[in-house]
Design a protein around this nucleic acid. Structure first.
Length: 483
RNA sequence: GGCGGUAUCGUCUAGGGGACUAGGACACAGCCCUCUCAAGGCUGGAACACGGGUUCGAAUCCCGUUACCGCUACCA
């Protein structure tokens, strides 16, 4: 049974720019985006920069970059909460005039004191509404004399409930909700006020966010109602935890999507992996392109349970995408890393396009990340190779190695043509004459050619390197062995 | 403490009263393939938190307990 979505469908992602775009935020953004794309809705981006002390332009940029990298494009101009101060204040003022809120002159110090007292008694502190009982002339007097005050919402009796898109019915008895502040004594709005005002203004019809906001929701519903605005549908997505079951934080390793980008994760793999944290298309489907995710996304598949971020599975997923996507699509994501590693210039790669594509084709099968590819690509660029000491120790330890390599060199040099058929014939011939299994010859040769005991098939390596470099590397190996 | 939320292999999950001897994937182990490494194929170990109901029948519905998570600011 699928729940009905409102029309028009307008969703938003509203991060506060106090850091980078972390995986939890990215997942929330992705689910919002997927919902909008699947059902023809509008995806909005609002930067909640009201906490001026912690907000930075740099993290705003990081959020844009992160979203763009993930392919989560927004449909209307970005809005900034900080720019809406006047409206927030006007809405708060409206609430005061309508009698839904009252002035509270209690100072933070007083409140803190009473809170400490209640705690000492083992009681839960709840604002006692004493300022709501002030006589009108007393209020007038204190306002006139310039006493600072905040605006508090007068929570009515009864209960507040809603039908959450992911959790179903959730009910809060109003007696458990304290008369919360909506406007500080300096005239700036508290989060719940700003959010509601902005969501009403942006005509947001589905508020999908982390379930750490569940306890804010009744307060926000109260505000919508007092403001006479229609309620959006609420959807509370489960949290993402670290491997210890706790909320994700620095000690769990990388949290920022940018970190994964730099570790060589493909955006589509990141999206795929993140989408599956808290959502399932049902059945055994796992690896999907963005398009497939859009087609299959549904609020019915949204899960309630917090999930644990498993890096191993992300890497596996990345390997799947690395091999599934058309080479033309992933090449632009790999080339910058190749260039940054100093292996080749963009121009050189462009001039040797066919060779480069062949290399990538060979390496991507045995890689899980872009970084893996770069690491493995090194031996194919330039003339010299770095010999891996362990590989040398293991593969060249047999005293006949020099003889063997020399023979292989001569056979290769004598090949009628530098192509797979003749090369294979040459090498297999050597192995046969010496009564050796192919591996006994190929492994020492692999080390001579690539410096490593791990590489693509030996004939592919020979082709990639070309005749000249292949023979030269064997010669170098023979010199090393002669010492 | 109060309030709210959640509970299937180590992890991501399928399942929504009988198809469950609980399926898939990651990870792990073994085997196959094989010039190495990957990829791929096959096999294995591994879960319905606990207790009560309801029902002919419960992983599935209800209640309780426990555990975990979140919120509990003139933070967002």
């Amino acid at each position: 049974m699928s729940k009905t979505l409102p029309t028009p469908l307008r969703v938003r992602f509203a991060p506060s720019p106090t850091g980078y775009l972390h995986v939890g935020g990215a997942r929330t953004a992705l689910h919002n985006w997927l919902l909008a794309r699947r059902y023809g809705g509008v995806f909005l981006l609002r930067i909640e920069d009201t906490d001026r002390a912690r907000s930075t332009d740099e993290s705003t940029r990081a959020i844009f970059e992160g979203l763009e990298w993930l392919g989560l494009t927004w449909d209307e101009e970005v809005t900034y909460q900080g720019a809406n101060l006047a409206r927030h204040q006007a809405d708060a003022q409206r609430l005061l005039e309508a009698g839904a809120v009252y002035r509270c002159f209690c100072t933070p110090a007083e409140l803190e004191h009473r809170r400490a007292e209640a705690e000492a008694r083992g009681d839960a502190f709840r604002y006692d509404r004493r300022c709501d009982r002030l006589a009108p002339d007393e209020i007038q007097r204190r306002v006139a004399s310039g006493d600072p005050f905040v605006l508090r919402f007068r929570v009515p009796d009864g209960s507040t409930e809603w039908d959450d898109l992911v959790h179903g019915q959730i009910t809060f008895p109003n007696k458990d909700i304290e008369d919360f502040v909506i406007l500080r004594s300096d005239g700036t709005p508290i989060y719940n006020m700003a959010v509601v005002s902005d969501d009403i203004d942006a005509r947001v019809t589905v508020v999908m966010r982390g379930d750490d906001h569940i306890s804010n929701t009744p307060k926000q519903i109260l505000l919508y109602t007092a403001l006479g605005a229609p309620l959006p549908v609420f959807a509370h997505l489960p949290m993402i935890h670290g491997t210890d079951g706790k909320k994700l934080s620095k000690r769990h390793g990388a949290m920022a999507v940018g970190d994964y980008r730099h570790q060589g994760i493909l955006p589509s793999a990141m999206d795929n992996f993140l989408a599956l944290l808290g959502w399932s298309p049902g059945g055994d489907i796992e690896v999907m392109t963005m398009q497939e995710m859009i087609e299959r996304f549904s609020p019915d598949g949204l899960l309630k349970k917090a999930s644990v971020f498993d890096l191993k599975k992300l890497e596996w997923m990345n390997g799947q995408h690395l091999n599934m996507l058309p080479l033309e699509q992933i090449e632009p994501l790999i080339t910058p890393a190749i260039v940054d590693a100093g292996l080749a210039t963009r121009d050189w790669l462009a001039a040797n396009h066919a060779w480069y594509m062949k290399l990538l084709e060979l390496l991507r099968v045995r890689s899980r990340t872009v970084s893996d590819i770069v690491r493995q690509a090194a031996p194919y660029f330039g003339d010299a190779v770095d010999l891996d000491p362990d590989a040398v120790a293991k593969q060249w330890k047999d005293p006949v190695t020099p003889e063997l390599l020399g023979e292989a060199r001569d056979a290769l040099a004598a090949a009628s043509d530098w192509s797979e058929g003749p090369l294979e014939e040459a090498l297999r011939g050597v192995a046969e004459r010496r009564g050796l299994g192919a591996g006994k010859l190929f492994q020492p040769l692999r080390v001579a050619l690539t410096g490593s005991s791990v590489s693509p098939g030996i004939f592919d390596v020979l082709l990639l390197l070309g005749r000249e470099r292949s023979l030269a590397r064997i010669d170098t190996a023979l010199q090393v062995l002669a010492r």
